[in-house]
């Protein structure tokens, strides 16, 4: 199957410090490669500061990468400037659903206006055609038509989440980037939204990049998982593989930190102490996890481990995986 999205050696470096001449280089996303197949849901996990958000902004073409390629279908998006991308037809093909729908919808737009905005801008719809399409989207995402005239503050958390999704699928994208779409929701509403997303994926043939903190949610809906640490992918593979047989010590630490609904008192679990290394001018020879890694050895400071196969479709970047 040819990939829908193929990211190759993507890199984003921000200059930091010292007016004029930058003193440091912050490696936010460093040599990241992965792909997403049509109809696939790929989870992206990692702690804050690991580069998830930067990666998402590069893929959504809100920021320009420093190096690397983003092949989407037949086009390389990396070469197109972020400024001006909004006017290109590719804009419609990659859409985003943001973390807190309450924060990301214009408070002065009604639900109707929020969903209509991308249709006006990218599809040029007006009048009855616009009305019809918005109603169609409201039906598809389970928003009662009577609520379309309401403002965000008059909607419940679940309804706002639906508006965020309706707006994102309005222009018929092929890839949806979901940035913690259920983080602000209660569990019972979360179930409904996750089921809606899975249903839409099937009906519309969408692919998802699902950014999340919540391993238990990733386990529910993702076909594959990518684990990032300090700008690099440290592990990726099929969900059952990565979460069931984690090969990288960071993935293991991440999983052992997830609280579990247990009936017995949990046994001692390894905890990840300390803070991540600085992402500014990192030593290219030292593993980014070295120093915090419970299994670190001198070899980890001599050469950067590369992503290598540890199982079918399962890669990990550790000398000792």
């Amino acid at each position: 199957m040819t990939a829908l999205l193929d990211v190759i050696n993507l890199q984003k470096i921000y200059p930091v410090g010292g007016g004029g001449k930058a003193r440091g280089q912050l490696h936010a996303v460093d040599d990241v490669s992965f792909s997403i197949a049509p109809g696939e849901t790929v989870g992206l996990v990692g702690e804050s500061g690991c580069g998830k958000s930067t990666l998402v902004r590069l893929l959504a073409r809100l920021h320009d990468p420093t190096a690397g390629a983003i092949h989407f279908g037949d086009t390389d998006l990396a070469g197109m400037k972020a400024r001006g991308f909004a006017r290109r037809p590719e804009r419609a093909a990659i859409q985003m659903v943001f973390q807190d729908a309450g924060e990301s919808i214009n408070p002065r737009y009604t639900a109707f206006e929020a969903i209509a905005a991308p249709l006006r801008r990218l599809r040029g719809l007006r009048g009855t055609a616009l009305q019809q399409r918005v109603e169609e989207l409201a039906d598809a995402t389970g928003i009662p038509r009577a609520l379309l005239g309401r403002f965000p503050h008059q909607l419940s958390g679940g309804q706002k989440a639906r508006v965020g999704i309706a707006r994102a699928i309005a222009v018929e994208p092929r890839l949806l980037i979901l940035d913690e779409p259920t983080a602000a929701l209660d569990v019972s509403v979360q179930v409904v939204i996750l089921k809606l997303l899975m249903d839409l994926r099937q009906r519309l043939g969408l692919s998802y990049l699902f950014v999340s903190h919540d391993i238990n949610v990733v386990r529910l809906i993702c076909d594959r998982v990518i684990v990032m640490y300090l700008g690099k992918i440290v592990e990726q593979g099929p969900t059952a593989e990565v979460l069931g047989r984690p090969a990288h010590p960071y993935t293991r630490a991440l999983l052992s930190a997830v609280p579990e609904l247990t009936l017995e008192p949990p046994g001692p679990r390894p905890r990840l102490g300390g803070e991540p290394r600085s992402p500014i001018n990192p030593d290219p020879k030292v593993c980014r996890f070295f120093g915090r890694c419970p299994d670190g050895r001198p070899a980890c400071a001599d050469s950067m481990p590369r992503l290598s196969p540890v199982g079918p479709g399962h890669l990990a970047a550790c000398h000792f995986a």
Partner: peptide, 8 residues
């Protein structure tokens, strides 16, 4: 907080 920080 991140799960790792939460646990600590």
């Amino acid at each position: 907080l991140d799960v790792t920080t939460q646990a600590v």
